[in-house]
Design a protein around this nucleic acid. Structure first.
Lengths: 225, 225
DNA sequence: TTGCTCCTCACGTCACGTGAGGTGGC
DNA sequence: TTGCTCCTCACGTCACGTGAGGTGGC
């Protein structure tokens, strides 16, 4: 039989953790007449199962259920842990580049760009594939306008109809949105792909249309002629 | 400019997280006259840096420092993450065996044994190598007694001196400790190695001595002759 | 005017850690 | 008898989540 401190040292856990496990009824030691905890070797076996299950990232309440015979939560962790490992691998790769390189700040920036792009891609795919959920899209009228301009670019970019479409584009767009689009060079990596997906098109097609529309913008101060 | 909900959807974080980041002064958006948050595209860039640094497992307060120009915490994470990956690899390997096998309970038990052993080994090495800290040992007199008996086993196991040593061994050992040693077959894997290290010897030598000493034990009820 | 969104407390969660203040055992 | 260990609250930490109760904007 061990006192709580002896037992904690033996198993390399903290006294606080042992008390915590008792509160959750995960590991309940014997008590002396003076109410001091006394741990036995059998408690050590149980603790080792707890510590092992903890390496799977299981919550303590779930660990209790597993020790009570419900093994289901254990294999269910596999997918989560593999996902976690994939993220961890990427983080480690990035840190190694950062540690090994001459300019940590620049390397960090590169990784921020890269991982932001991945996040956007994942988000886009998740949203596109979520069952029962329509993909994010701009409004129908704006989408129609975008498609009309896109079509005009391969037809008659300088015709009267196209001018009309471009005017409509600018008139129906909030000034702040327009300002944001103007500054698209500063957008985080991947945002462009997301925005393009809002228009149900590729980043290249979106860029082509926006570049054209901006080039046709009337100066804000002078009236158009 | 985006409302908090628009911005949260755009970046795939929760509204609660954004408010939390503001409380920590990690990401402070503009406010409308009616005190509603308004996020700009520049906020998105900053958020992406936050989310990326979060993948390194950095605390939010540290992330704030990093964004303020202190890059030191970043490379410092590498060792921790690599350690984490090693544990994760072991957990995943175990889960794959558990998922793939016929008897999850048995596979789990095996892994518990294995990881318990590893934990004991690590603990033993850590304690042995900690600078300025003597390895865990039993008391000097008990250690001397153990060594004397060990030596006697290769000399004269049945001599009068050896009997005397064994008697002393039993007399100076607490009944509970003796009981625990008797049940050593049920000890968790690795505990044996740790106990042996307390006697500054190998598990095999320890087992040899203990087996001998137990075989020479006087029955508790009858007086020795 | 309805209802949707936004706001600010305040408290909860998870796995412990950190004292405070007091008692027990060698 | 001293001091070391043990005990039980109660509150803190970290990164948010969960309501409650109320206001603002289209």
């Amino acid at each position: 039989m061990y006192t709580i401190q002896q037992f904690a040292r033996l198993a390399d856990v903290t006294v606080k953790a042992l008390r915590h496990y008792e509160r959750l009824e995960l590991l309940v030691p014997a008590r002396t007449t003076s109410h001091h905890r006394r741990y036995a070797v059998t408690d050590l076996s149980r603790l080792e199962r707890v510590l092992t299950l903890r390496t799977f990232g299981l919550p303590l309440a779930t660990i209790r259920a597993v020790l009570d015979g419900d093994l289901h939560p254990v294999p269910a962790r596999l997918a989560t842990l593999m996902d976690l490992r994939a993220r961890l691998d990427r983080a480690i790769d990035a840190l190694q580049v950062i540690v090994g390189g001459a300019d940590p700040g620049e390397a960090l920036d590169t990784f921020v760009q890269e991982s932001a792009w991945l996040r956007w891609e994942r988000l886009r795919q998740t949203r596109a594939s979520t069952v029962g959920r329509a993909p994010d899209r701009v409004g129908a009228s704006r989408l129609a306008l975008f498609r009309a301009i896109d079509a005009a670019l391969t037809g008659d970019p300088h015709g009267q109809d196209t001018r009309q479409l471009v005017r409509q584009w600018h008139e129906t767009m909030a000034p702040e949105t327009r300002e944001a689009v103007r500054r698209r060079a500063g957008w985080p990596a991947g945002m462009r792909a997301y925005i393009a997906s809002l228009y149900d098109t590729t980043p290249e097609a979106w860029e082509r249309v926006v570049t054209f529309v901006e080039s046709q913008a009337e100066p804000a101060t002078a009236p158009g002629g």
